[in-house]
Nucleic acid binder design. Structure first.
Lengths: 135, 135, 135, 135
DNA sequence: GTGGTCTAGACCACG
DNA sequence: GTGGTCTAGACCACC
């Protein structure tokens, strides 16, 4: 399963679920017409309250990412991919922007902000790309 | 006054106040022994409830940033500067790190993350440094 | 319920609540994973304002004794017991130490301090152990 | 001067002053008819607000420990010594008693309370009586 | 139902 | 004047 809940994250669980579904559609892991996991199944897998999953799904329906097919489940809508990519881009942009704003507000100059950014990026890349993996 | 409340910010008002005091101490705007603004005065200036300011100040006391001098006010503690600088650095580091993690989790590769970062940094710098100002 | 408020005690109500929860964890009356009484419930039982209980609980969270499970309640954290025992021991030690220091500062010699201590201990033990109960 | 202010002590400064005068009378450091330091002089020595000293002296007058001699100052009253000794005894008794009560309330049994007491007494005696000093 | 934030206003202790 | 405590009640997010 492509979903994971981060208890340390301050964003609500239902938001984490909805966001990850959007990102999965944006990245192609979920394609138009695909069935997403049932509320009960996902709730069991993630060990969260079914109401929480249901709320995430409700928001995804409201955003037009999925649609209900009675008796079948929730399907990824045909036009959803492009919208999800836009949403993903915007969400990331906002997050990066606000982190930068906080940094500059705190009195660091752009060079220091950049150094901070590079240090963190290097740290994180070691998790995604083991040294020597990609020549 | 060095404090401003951002109503759009989802972080609680009392947290914004406490954080900005910590940053002011880290940056030297407030030095050891300085009296910070009184609860009532700051509440009036920021147009918030005195209890909200009091809560921010209570947390600053708990963190050891300020200490109460009964009948006088709250004073910046002598050893606070270094701790505040550490706290500021760590807060910024965490924020940048989590923004980057979200970016990479979403499937962007490091180059795309960097491009995103640069674009936002350039946007923000125009607020801090008018074009052509510094060669 | 294991909690009681002593109105005659000059220590704040929220402190009495927090301390008693710490002591309950230290003594095993509350175990890791246990749900502590809800803010509203405890406020009703003790006949104090919910905000007062909330403040006690906030401090317990800050101390790492309990953690919030959104929509569920406050749970005793897994590692809390040992820390609570340490905190309890230290609190008692400080109190005894300061009473003794005051006694010696006042000019009583150690033997007089000891006599005073024994007299009070005997007085108090009669509340905990009826005369003749234990040889 | 026999007075010292402990900033770490949570009891108010004026209380510390008044108490120490009472203890000085009880111990004979101040005798009936002695003049206690003037408000201004003591305030300067202790580096506290004159109002604070004045308040301490007001309480001492109310308790009948000192009396005003217009144009001269405040004198220790003739009958004060015995009352001060009683007050000192009672203050210490209460403090020891409340420390013991807290200890027993916390679940320690009398033997543990005694062990705690002895440990602290030994610690403190090393400050008052250097090893080998009194055989 | 849960906790979390905020407002409003009273009262007290200290200087 | 200062901070500290407590009450009362509103609104929100989450489950």
């Amino acid at each position: 399963m492509f979903l994971h809940i981060d208890a340390a994250d301050s964003t609500p669980v239902y938001d984490q679920i909805a966001r990850q579904v959007v990102f999965a559609v944006a990245g192609g892991a979920l394609a138009a017409g695909d069935l997403i996991p049932s509320v009960r199944e996902l709730a069991r897998e993630l060990a969260v309250n079914p109401n929480t999953v249901a709320r995430a799904y409700r928001e995804l329906q409201a955003q037009g990412v999925v649609e209900s097919s009675p008796g079948v489940g929730l399907l990824v809508r045909s036009g959803a991919k492009r919208a999800c990519q836009r949403a993903r881009r915007e969400a990331l942009r906002q997050r990066v922007s606000s982190a930068l704003r906080a940094t500059l507000d705190a009195g660091l100059d752009p060079d220091e902000a950049e150094a901070l950014f590079r240090a963190e990026l290097d740290k994180l890349c070691h998790r995604y790309q083991r040294p020597g993996e990609s020549a």
